[in-house]
Design a protein around this nucleic acid. Sequence first.
RNA 1: GGCCAGUUCGUCUAACGGUUAGGACUCAAGAUUUUCAUUCUUGCAAUAGGGGUUCGAUUCCCCUACUGGCUACCA
Length: 526
Amino acid sequence: MIKKKSCYLCPKDKNIMKRVRVRFAPSPTGPLHMGGVRTALYNYLFAKQHHGDFILRIEDTDSQRYVAGAEEYIIESLRWCGIFPNEGVLENGEMAVEPSPNHPHAPYRQSQRKSLYRAYAQQLVAQGDAYYAFDSAESLEALRQSAESKGEAFVYGPTSRATLDNSLAMEPHEVAKRLEEERWVIRFKIPQDHEVVFQDLIRGEIKVQSNTLDDKVLWKSIDGLPTYHLANVVDDHLMEISHVIRGEEWLPSLPLHILLYRAFQWQDTQPLFAHLSLLLKPDGKGKLSKRDGDRLGFPVFPLEWKSPEGVSKGYREEGYFPDAFVNMLALMGWNPGTEQELISLDELTHLFSLERVVKSGARFNLEKAHWFNQQYLRTKENTQLAQEFAQLLTEAGITFDPSKLLPIVELIKERALFVKDFIDLSDYFFTAPTQYDEKLLAKHWKEDMPQKMVAVKNFLFNIEPFTAEMIEHPLAQFIQASEWGMGGVMNALRLCIVGAAKGPGMAAIMSVIGKEETLRRIERML
RNA sequence: GGCCAGUUCGUCUAACGGUUAGGACUCAAGAUUUUCAUUCUUGCAAUAGGGGUUCGAUUCCCCUACUGGCUACCA
């Protein structure tokens, strides 16, 4: 049997092609971690590929956990990656507040949409799909505790709500009175004995028994704001979202969301869902978390994040190129189906497909991350690298001749993973060695070597101009003509100039540091 | 505990019922190189286990195990 791929652009068999509109909807409760960036990236790629819209919406309905600066961090992170929303964020990073041609569904911050959700919650209550509940946090906690002690699970749902403190069995006047006097929440009324069947673009068909579902709170009493579930569904509907691409942690609440769309009678325009697997810890168990970075010494955040608890590393500050980071991230949970691994953001835009997203969680691998950066470093223009290098040298307080940077970069580029490696890789270009590798010394600095070095020094003295081409062959010929071992002399020379068994060809190094300095370094060893 | 999802080399992954199970990273060996690195070549290394279905299962179905997520008036 041939499996037929379903078209994810046209949910029903209708010919109408809905405009692709996707959103990345982070909660500003802290810095965005790389898993979040990946989710944003996949949304962005999908939107771009289908010439659709990529919307950034801030889901700040949790007033308790709001973290100042998180929103700016999210926007800056995406910008660093080259991911630009075309709706929801103004050019200067400000959120659009009023609807406008480019931002027809403003505002895009849920706290600013607060007034809009209430009517929807009330509509559900009015039509019997939701109800008021007065149970205190303590009483619910007690119920959970006792259920747990019996090895059972407490579900505030179809089979238990009749025994709880809510408006379902109350007289209208009592409800009104208690609404007036007490704290209340609105809960969704999950239908009883119902099988909820739905599709996920990545996982296929999923079925859940409604009786195992919770009557989730849609409206909170503590801050008078909707919960994620309500705000999310309402906003996705109002913003005409066509595809919801989000993390797997949302899969368990998808049946609830499906039921909400049905309760609102929005099932015909309901978005299609794709749940991405999570990024896992490199070593042990669980999903990648903030702490792992500090513990294992790699960044989990795109940008450095400073908080009272400390500083968390960022890929940007660690010296990763944004395109390398994006490339690596794209390939954690997706592949183009070919053996191509180096893919630019622009290419990803064409190659990406939801069908090729892998179902299982991906573990981050530091070596591979290094490799990606190395590959990208090699493709960079030497002038750009020299510029970044100059900045690092200045920061490190190393004085240098700017005209030598380009040739140095050329020589050490392929030995580096990061631009910051240039510093260690190039020290001998700037300062004469202060210590000499002992093994090399023992092996190559034999008794007769000083005399030979004097001869080499004199030979070099007469080379003009002092370029790599002018040095290389004549020097080799000179050594061979003297019937000395090529390796021995060259290694000894390297010892004088570099101090260690590392670096590019000697002729190249000497030409960069210049004749005067070359001779001086040989002199020091005699 | 309950619900949902997942499981191919150490890691990221390919193989949409027929391949000597492919590639990349890592690691090892060799070649090149005046050193180191690069580069090139080669190698090590996997279908979680058990049942079906089938002429034939990595692939489809069931069970078990394991992993992950969710189980808040957090998202």
